[in-house]
Amino acid sequence: MAPDQTNLLQGTLDMMILKSLALAEMHGLGISSRIEQITQGTFQVKPGSLFPALHRMEEEGWLVSHWGESENNRRAKFYRLTNAGRHQLEAEAKRWSRIALAITRTLEAL
């Protein structure tokens, strides 16, 4: 069930979702447009990856969800970070910096 190793891309997606929820709670599509917005369109998260990720992270206990109203008065499910989620975000961010640094060095060395 809980994977020992998860590939980098999934980790990255998780991190971006956590990060976009760090400031405020959001509904699913809000998260994907937020990611698109931050990364200036580099990452477009399709619903087919987004919803499974959200449900998985909720099952991990990093997110909680509740029903609310969207900006244009539609019913939508909103997600919020838990404390575990914040820890996870920190851990992911640290890991990412480490990898990014390592890659940068590798590229400079070449």
Binding site: M1, A2, D4, Q5, T6, N7, G11, W62, Q88
Partner: peptide, 25 residues
């Protein structure tokens, strides 16, 4: 990307944690 260059998830290492078990139920 190869699996061996990936890190571990701090909260999912080893056995199933409690929230996940609760989800299972």
């Amino acid at each position: 990307m190869e699996p061996h260059c990936t890190g571990h998830y701090p909260h999912t290492r080893g056995l199933m944690n409690f929230p996940r078990f609760a989800s299972l139920l």
